[in-house]
Design a binder for these strands. Sequence first.
DNA 1: GAGTGGTCTAGACCACTAA
DNA 2: TAGTGGTCTAGACCACTCG
Lengths: 242, 242
Amino acid sequence: MTIINRPKSIVKQVSEILRQRIAEGTYTHGKRLPSESELAQEFGVSRATVRAALGALENERLITRRQGDGTYLNERVMEISAQLHCTWDFQCMIADSGRKPSVQVLQITKRPPNANEAKILEISPYNPVIALVRIFFADAQPVIYSTNVIPAAFFVEENIDATLPIHVLFEKYCQQKISYSISDISATVADESLISYLKIKPGDAILRFNDVFYNPQNQPLLFGESYYDDKVLRLRVARAWG
Amino acid sequence: MTIINRPKSIVKQVSEILRQRIAEGTYTHGKRLPSESELAQEFGVSRATVRAALGALENERLITRRQGDGTYLNERVMEISAQLHCTWDFQCMIADSGRKPSVQVLQITKRPPNANEAKILEISPYNPVIALVRIFFADAQPVIYSTNVIPAAFFVEENIDATLPIHVLFEKYCQQKISYSISDISATVADESLISYLKIKPGDAILRFNDVFYNPQNQPLLFGESYYDDKVLRLRVARAWG
DNA sequence: GAGTGGTCTAGACCACTAA
DNA sequence: TAGTGGTCTAGACCACTCG
């Protein structure tokens, strides 16, 4: 018997079902999953498909596979893995911490790029950019001060909802997909404007991200600078070795 | 004709060959790789094998695949990808920045764990730990101050070379493999001892990592705290979206 | 020895892009 | 329309762990 709808990728459907079952605690008995052959039979798909689905979960370290033994849950990563799926979507991260995310748009203006922005975004100084300044809150507490600079030429629509997550915004108003980003992570001492925006103590250290986002065609889409108060929202990441 | 030795994983051999060719500039003509079928034929393997090898490179964003079109290089990521392979091996990261890495072992002692360490490492307070304090240098410049705490029971050998990277050290002296790690990243203001060790200015901000490493059996292997001067060594990461 | 995950193959069909 | 990558199958054999 088949539980699977063909129209969408079978591998993704299987991995989503497994992910959901794991979250629901279906496999808590011994923290062990059924064997690959059993899952293949249950879903009515080939073992290769099940393996691909499990591979996605293993990459996130949600499960551990042991040759000759079985596939086991990793409860430690289950607690933080949501952060990895969302790939640093700030609102998602805040929600994962159990608090209510909200956004305040401080500024949204069209202006010429400065020299650095023009260089990074690979546009001429005469192509205007949209500058978007936002603050993210966890409950009522400010966490992140974020500036995004996007070439105005990408926008196919003028009226935008600037509270949307950046990848949604790109899909909706620019018809662009974010493929990957390159980020510099650094520590800095908050200046006066940050102190007032994020309500932190003078002299306190704060995380800074300098990001550039690219589409699958390798064009730069966005240049961002974000300040992240790690005292309010813990930045926790899982990394695979080997 | 087959270029492949069977003893080691064919997929890994193929991806290593491709990685090397990319680094050597074999495919700079149009930044385009041969088609999957051509590569399969050249290596004498199935197309599925080639796809798995390419998948690994795509995960690192070293290449971009476009359905109906072809497989292309991503030169932007090529410049920084070495950092991703080494998964934050400090000496590797320093070498990638074009400078000569070196390590100074400040301290290596056996002592009882404190309450926090015992809890994180899941050992009793009576099981001693090895505490390892090191400083990493880029050329002559101090970059990272790192403390590692490891249950002494893991060591099968007493005389260890503490200058080795941590994953090599675990394989050699503990016969343990690091599977994944969970890290908290934060910013902090350097205290007096850091100021003198890393030769930074009072009041300057610095990155801090709190790491726990685990083996494939999900046992905690190591608890680490590292301070990273991002003004000396840039922390640049590539992230995949979607 | 039975069962598990790890690897690889050969072939099929589809969706998409470019000329 | 030809060629590309994307997906999936069925089956084979291996390496490993466990009882």
